[in-house]
Design a protein around this nucleic acid. Structure first.
Lengths: 148, 148
DNA sequence: ATGTTTGCAAATAGTTTGCATCCAG
DNA sequence: CTGGATGCAAACTATTTGCAAACAT
């Protein structure tokens, strides 16, 4: 597990209250999974979180990790990354941000862009649908893979 | 199978030349799968194309459909939709367009927007990566599901 | 106390692979 | 003819479900 930053401590507090709001128990498994998720610099899959948590919580099961991550998604503590790949990847970053995905290695890189954040929703969409999330998705080759 | 429009006929011709360019045979299976794909109004999964093609090509196998769709993606005849769901969905629409996805029913709706098409790539990204694709992804509730 | 959560095992869904046969070029 | 494509079966990966035991509140 990564060493807890102030940011992580802060998020742990809101984690507990959000769980309570939804009538969910604060179990050690959920705490451990949440800590791993928010201290992840990337977009971890259930398996990668499972492997990290298992280092110090040896008898946790992959099913619990899967179930818990889906629960987190449901109550708004995580998002599922839009990607065309097989294993679901989770995103602990709830701030507005955008994604670049390398089509060669599959790496997904977050980036901030105030201009993108401020994009207007087209009228034809706004009239018919309720838009809750807006994200620019870029694709191509990352610096590692462009060299190949 | 949908009745062939002029657009479909047109695309079939370029389909054959693109296959030849890549040294791929024009097999009846590939033609059938391609016809289904491009006449799809939505973003079909391998299974849904399999089911439609099977109506008149009864002994085609799902494996062939899967393999063929991946081949189409490789040679640029189709794209895989960025989505967080399980079954891969393919996109026959190669024109620049954007997606709205309903988080309730999973429907993905294409929309055109010239302003979005013209978005600049942020300098920090352009410097490091090669960007081949740019798409705005919106999420929320579609008109059907917002009522529920 | 009791209703939720967990871990295990089995089931399921989607996709991929190996291989013999078949067919397009 | 011949190499690539297909169909079948089996393997594999990711995820989900049923259920009894364990735990949080």
């Amino acid at each position: 597990m990564n060493v807890g930053s102030d940011r992580t401590e802060e998020r742990l507090l809101s984690f507990e209250s959000i769980c309570r709001e939804h009538g969910l128990s604060i179990t050690p498994q959920r705490v451990a999974i949440y800590k791993e998720l928010v201290s992840s610099p990337d977009h971890p899959s259930a398996i990668s979180i499972f492997n990290k948590v298992r280092e110090y919580y040896s008898n946790i099961s992959l099913d619990t990790v899967n179930r818990t991550l889906l629960t987190f998604q449901k109550i708004g503590l995580a998002k599922v990354v839009e990607s065309s790949g097989d294993p679901k990847r989770f995103d602990p970053n709830l701030e507005p941000h955008h994604h670049f995905r390398c089509i060669s290695c599959g790496e997904i890189i977050d980036f901030r862009d105030e201009f993108y954040d401020a994009l207007e929703i087209p009228a034809e969409i706004k009239e018919k649908f309720v838009v809750l999330e807006k994200k620019v998705h870029l694709e191509g080759f990352c610096d590692q893979c462009r060299a190949t």
